[in-house]
Design a protein around this nucleic acid. Sequence first.
DNA 1: AGCACA
Length: 232
Amino acid sequence: MLSGDIPPNQTIYIKNLNEKVKKDELKRSLYCLFSQYGRILDVVALKTPRLRGQAWVCFSEVTAASNAVRQMQNFPFYEKPMRIQYAKTKSDCIAKEEGSYVPREKKKKQEEKAERKRRAEEAQQSAAANGIHGASNGGPTASFRQGSSAQEAAAPNNILFIENLPHETTGRMLEMLFEQYPGFKEVRLIEAKPGIAFVDFEDEVQSSMAMQALNGFKITPMNPMNITFAKK
DNA sequence: AGCACA
């Protein structure tokens, strides 16, 4: 119902994207945002009149796509909530991996018949494969966890304190998550202490918005971000 | 709203 009656697909179809974002930046940001769910084979975005504001993200596993559809539904991305469904057809990059790719001109009727069958099979496989995937994200906006320690919470202020980041996290990755919220200023990683960061906003209202939206966000399945106000 | 593969 949420995603219509489209059967599961390795590729997700995203609409309601901010059309002002340039194509290459959009593709890169989508790649970063969705790689938490699994290996991405391709990201397709076109700016033609008919296709702007939409994109396709192709995963190597159907289960990754399923998690992405559920957990990133309505995620505020460049100020607009993403609307995510399964793609209606198989992506070329997937067909190429399976060796079933037929160049555009030829594939018409003959392919479409076979494709229905294939998709039905995939739906079964994904059902069978369910149960492998681990922790489910409470949803990007669903989480309001405060500091897990018995610490006194700091009063709201313009600086966010981020904990539980994977050690491989880069400043650019965090920027891409936080810069979509108004008032963003900068990210500061602490080299001496991997796994934590500070994010500066113009004021405490704007920092609160970002905290509410991103608290608990999983950069990897093992790393839900823990966001609190920094102690001053 | 809009389902492609530059």
